[in-house]
C-alpha cells in the first residue's frame, strides 16, 4: 500500500498579480485503494494543491511537507514525482504540435522502464487500443498531435487515456468534469472506475457533486480559504449540494469570504 501525505502545507504563487498565498496549512493523508474527493468554492486553492503536489515550478511551498511513502518529495522535479507514482490530469493540458499522442504516451511509459525493458510496439498498440475502447476514442486520436486542436472534451478524455496507459499508484484529477456534457462525464468516469482497485488511489478535485455520482468517493474533503475545513463520507458531498458552501461555512462558524470568483481558479492553472 502506497501513502501520500500532505502536512501543514503553505503555498504561495507568483502570477501576473504578484505574490499570493493560497494554501494556509493543509493536511491530507491518502492511501492506494482509496478515492478521495476535494470540493470547495472557486478560488479556494484546489488547483494550487494539485499543481503543488505534482511539482509545478510556479508554486512555492513556504511551509509544511509532501511525503510519498514517508519520503519528502518537495525537492523532486516534476518528472521524478511522476515516475515515482504521481499523476495529474490537468485542467489545461499543454498543446504540443509535431509530437503525436501515441509517441508521447510511449515515451511516458518507457520513462518508467529501463532501457532493456522498453515496451514493445505490439504490446503498446494493443494496450492503447484497449484503453481507447474504454473511453470511446477513435483511433485517429492516437496519431493527432498532442492536445493540438483538441476540443475541451477531447482533452479531458486524453488526460484519462494517459492515466489508463501509465497506471500510476496515485492520480489527481483536477476538475476533470468541467466543461463535459453528461455523456462525456460518464465515459470519463468509466475510465477512472476502470482503474479502481487496491493499487490505485485518486484525489478528485471538483466544484460540483455531480461527478461523484459516477465516481463514488470513500472520503470527501471540503476546502475553504486554503485549508480542509471538513471531511466525511460520500454523504457530505450530497449535503453540500443541498446547503451550498455558504451554509457549511456558517455551520462551522468560519470567517471566510466566499466571493465566488470564477476567474480565480483558471488563473492558478496557467
Amino acid at each position: 500500500m502506497d501513502t501520500l501525505e500532505v502536512k501543514d502545507l503553505h503555498v504561495a504563487v507568483d502570477d501576473e498579480d504578484g505574490h499570493q498565498v493560497i494554501l494556509k496549512g493543509l493536511n491530507l493523508t491518502m492511501h492506494t485503494g482509496e478515492i478521495h474527493a476535494i470540493m470547495g468554492p472557486n478560488g479556494t486553492g484546489k488547483s494550487t494543491l494539485s499543481e503543488t503536489i505534482m511539482g509545478n515550478p510556479k508554486y512555492h511551498v513556504t511551509q509544511g511537507d509532501i511525503l510519498l511513502n514517508g519520503e519528502s518529495i518537495l525537492d523532486w522535479p516534476v518528472d521524478k514525482r511522476a515516475r515515482h507514482g504521481l499523476f495529474l490530469a490537468m485542467q489545461y493540458p499543454a498543446e504540443i504540435a509535431g509530437v503525436t499522442n501515441a509517441e508521447f504516451m510511449r515515451a511516458a511509459i518507457n520513462a518508467r522502464r529501463d532501457d532493456d525493458h522498453q515496451i514493445g510496439v505490439r504490446e503498446f498498440i494493443q494496450k492503447l487500443d484497449d484503453k481507447m475502447a474504454i473511453l470511446d476514442m477513435s483511433e485517429e486520436m492516437a496519431e493527432r498531435y498532442l492536445n493540438q486542436g483538441f476540443s475541451g472534451g477531447e482533452k479531458k478524455r486524453n488526460e484519462i487515456l494517459q492515466l489508463l496507459m501509465i497506471e500510476p499508484p496515485f492520480a489527481i484529477l483536477d476538475e476533470i468534469d468541467s466543461g463535459l456534457d453528461i455523456d462525456a462525464l460518464k465515459v470519463v468516469s468509466k475510465g477512472v472506475n476502470a482503474m479502481r482497485g487496491d493499487n490505485f488511489g485518486a484525489l478528485i478535485i471538483t466544484h460540483y457533486q455531480r461527478l461523484l455520482n459516477y465516481i463514488v468517493p470513500d472520503v470527501v474533503h471540503v476546502m475553504m480559504d486554503g485549508r480542509i475545513v471538513k471531511s466525511g463520507n460520500a454523504d457530505l458531498a450530497k449535503t453540500l449540494e443541498k446547503e451550498g458552501y455558504v451554509g457549511l461555512r456558517d455551520d462551522l462558524g468560519l470567517d471566510v469570504p466566499l466571493t465566488d470568483e470564477p476567474a480565480a481558479d483558471k488563473k492558478e492553472a496557467h
Binding site: 505534482m54 511539482g55 509545478n56 515550478p57 522535479p77 516534476v78 518528472d79 511522476a82 515516475r83 499523476f87 495529474l88 490537468m90 493540458p93 499543454a94 504540443i96 509530437v99 509517441e103 508521447f104 504516451m105 515515451a107 511516458a108 520513462a111 518508467r112 494517459q162 501509465i166
Partner: peptide
Amino acid sequence: YYLMSRGITEAKATEMI
C-alpha cells in the same frame, strides 16, 4: 512541465518538443 508531469525526463521532453 506537461511532458515531465508524465514522468518524461527534462532532456527527453526537450528533445520531443
